[in-house]
Design a protein around this nucleic acid. Structure first.
Lengths: 342, 342
DNA sequence: GGGGGTCGTGGAAACGTTTTCATGGCGCTA
DNA sequence: TAGCGCCATGAAAACGTTTCCACGACCCCC
């Protein structure tokens, strides 16, 4: 017999047990769908749960199971700009879809600046989550260090720049960029420019490397005036394209390292009176939703997002279940989606 | 004396106590900055904590304190589009800034669809968080019901459409919209159109109501062809403006219920060869970052975001500390920011 | 120099679960 | 019918904290 207290605060498992006329152990078994419960007991417990509106106390449960059934997607980025990147939205969508029919919860943690990074590190180490998927965008990010310092399973979205041994899932950025560039070459374009991502992000670097590799492979060396650095935003794409047109007015193609930037580039090209693809062929990267609807529809490099989010979850769950951190990695093939812009 | 176990898993408070030669109670006091600890004991404990790399187990602590020191921002929206809305990003930024120097953590929960809403409801009711700030965008949203059904403190971002008794913080949407419309009237514009938000969102409705009220107050009744419904996105703004130009080619002003839509409207106007503000004056809403940099810079209605996020936190903390839910509300004044577009 | 007060400390009881282990009842097989 | 094993059940021990309470030691003031 436990405290059959007044109807003040939330009911406990003990009260349910009393009402149902069984022991706490049996209630626990019903709650957790254990098969070793008689139908009668099960029904009685369920009725009591219903009557008391019982909902299990997660903290008490986690204390003994050492599981929170929660994983975090942590986003390490100085400004909130990232939210508007369709790639990020896709990752969130993919992850929650993936977790929908499990009993795992997904929480997002956003870290702007050092203090918040520390705070998130504490949050994670204190055992609030079973694992972390980390989108660490810039290479001077502290969070990989902070998080891999603890015991919590971690999977990175995107290859870590320093080659540290940690599990990650990435697209074949270099390969995709090379394929895009080769496609432009195969169209007979001679002056192929690129709008790269920020050079402190690994996706930016790898795509730029792929572009260079494809040109080198064709016996070309890209002129410096054909490379402009963007920031993965539409506005950045406008700026970069404008600069390219000023520095290299004779360009006849451009590989843009993200679709939002490509949309910006299209605007700048239109403003400059260049026709796409007749005067300038454009290839983007990401196959964001906007790529299909912009004018002209964008030829772009698609990443298999569902596959990638699936792998992230898989790698993370493997670590959680085995109880030990791994450094498994998965690199997913990209594919060129041909539309009208190149 | 507790288990002075091997260096296998994470150390516990008991092991720290043993190493420091004090009781668990004393260690707890040091951890929680209680003043009633002698300097010597404090130093000894701190050294032990350091040596063992001790980090408190949050679940155990929460079990007894009934606090998680975590609040959730839950985002109830069918698609991930919202992420790209600068208003959302501003709220996130404001909240985390506000919580930066407290020991509260902020987590984001995104619910797309009924199943995820249920899941979030469970997550919250199980006691994962101390309180919830709910951005419930559409009026058929289940989450307000789900969440206010439990005992967890809730503050809504935005007035609930059904007038239920729940704490909320909102901008004076109607007032801001009316001010914007009056401004257009004062410029001598006669055919003032509007691009409204979705009519199943309270912000959309209130801003539309404000527009209508200002016209009525001036003795005008807005013609139906001067009202186009948008969806708060840039693409929606383009579509709505295009439709308005088709249905009411003689319009000379437009009040747009959000800045992203206003940016879209500007594009459509330019494409149609209308000059802004000479031919058509444009006023937006939100004072998003983009308003200052678009062409022409946008006259818009600013919401006091810092004040609003501050109030949300304040209202929520009040409830958490008092232990009871309130239905306090705060409505913040907006202000017209004059730039070049009107 | 004794009595009240403060102060630092440790013992032990919570907090609400899960899970191990023992037990008793039952049906089956030999 | 005896014996064996399975199955549903409950008692009790965890899990790692916080916090109440009691207990000395010490200081200060009369």
């Amino acid at each position: 017999m436990t405290t059959t207290g007044a109807r003040t605060s939330t009911p406990t498992l003990g009260e349910v047990a009393d009402l149902a006329g069984v022991s706490r152990a049996t209630v626990s078994r019903v709650i957790n769908d254990s098969p070793r419960v008689s139908p009668e007991a099960r029904v009685a417990v369920q009725a009591a749960v219903e009557a008391l509106r019982y909902v299990p106390n997660r903290m008490a449960r986690s204390l003994v199971t050492r599981r929170t059934d929660t994983i975090a997607l942590v986003l390490s980025e100085a400004d909130t700009q990232v939210f508007s990147d369709p790639f990020f939205a896709s990752i969130v969508r993919g992850l929650s879809a993936r977790l929908a029919d499990t009993d795992l919860n997904l929480v997002l943690l956003a870290a702007r600046g050092e203090r918040e990074q520390e705070k998130i590190g504490r949050y994670v180490r204190q055992g609030h989550v079973d694992g972390v998927i980390l989108m660490s965008l810039h290479n001077d990010d502290l969070l990989p260090d902070i998080l891999t310092g603890g015991h919590v399973p971690v999977v990175l979205s995107g290859r870590p720049l320093d080659g540290r041994p940690v599990a990650y899932v990435d697209a074949d950025n270099a390969g995709g960029a090379a394929a895009a560039t080769r496609h432009l070459l195969s169209l007979g374009r001679r002056r192929i420019a690129t709008i790269s991502g920020p050079t402190d992000m690994v996706a930016g670097l790898d795509r730029l490397a792929g572009y260079r590799a494809a040109l080198a492979e064709a016996g070309r060396t890209p002129a410096p005036e054909l490379v402009a650095e963007g920031d993965f935003t539409e506005a950045g794409g406008v700026r970069a394209m404008t600069r390219l047109l000023a520095d290299a007015p004779d360009l006849d193609a451009v590989f843009v390292a993200s679709d939002p930037m490509a949309v910006g580039a299209l605007q700048a090209l239109r403003a400059a009176g260049r026709r796409v693809p007749e005067d300038v062929a454009v290839v983007g990267f990401d196959d964001a939703a906007v790529a299909a609807v912009c004018d002209p529809p964008l030829t772009t490099v698609a990443q298999p997002l569902d596959e990638m989010t699936g792998l992230m979850v898989e790698l993370l769950l493997d670590q959680i279940e085995s109880g030990e951190r791994t450094a498994e990695t998965r690199v997913c093939a990209t594919s060129l989606v041909r539309r009208a812009s190149a």
